[in-house]
């Protein structure tokens, strides 16, 4: 029998909303928004995979024993990867917005279906 874990499924629904936007929308700004939503859901999925029930943040405080910390903290590796991924996502979005501005200056529209003149 098929059984779906609720949290993972909701996260993937978010991913599918972004995918739907990329495939069907025509406005360049809407496409950028869909890509941001997909990025967010992927980052969230990585964090969900590294979570542990009733876990504490991976930051030691003074007087905490190492054994208790190791048995209680959530996964620090996925958090570090997600931190890198978020900042790279910002730079990618900056590049996409620059291209969208250029398209608007040239063709005077954000609608990607009206761009027919691709010659130099």
């Amino acid at each position: 029998m098929i059984s779906l874990p609720v949290t993972y499924s909701l996260c993937l629904v978010l991913f599918f909303i972004g995918l739907y936007g990329i495939v069907t929308k025509k406005n360049a700004v809407k496409i950028i928004i869909s890509i941001i939503i997909m990025e967010n859901s992927v980052n969230l999925f990585l964090l969900l995979v590294g979570y542990r029930k009733d876990g504490i943040a991976p930051i030691m405080t003074e007087g905490m024993s190492v054994e208790k910390f190791v048995s209680g903290a959530v996964d620090p590796l996925t958090q570090a990867m997600v931190l890198t991924s978020i900042v790279i996502g910002l730079s990618v979005v900056a590049l996409m917005v620059a291209i969208a501005i250029r398209i608007y200056e040239r063709f005077n529209t954000f609608d990607v279906s009206e761009i027919k003149d691709l010659k130099g």
Partner: peptide, 14 residues
Amino acid sequence: ALQDLPQFGTAMAF
């Protein structure tokens, strides 16, 4: 793919 994931809250790396 969701069938193969471990249950939520039991972290993969552990």
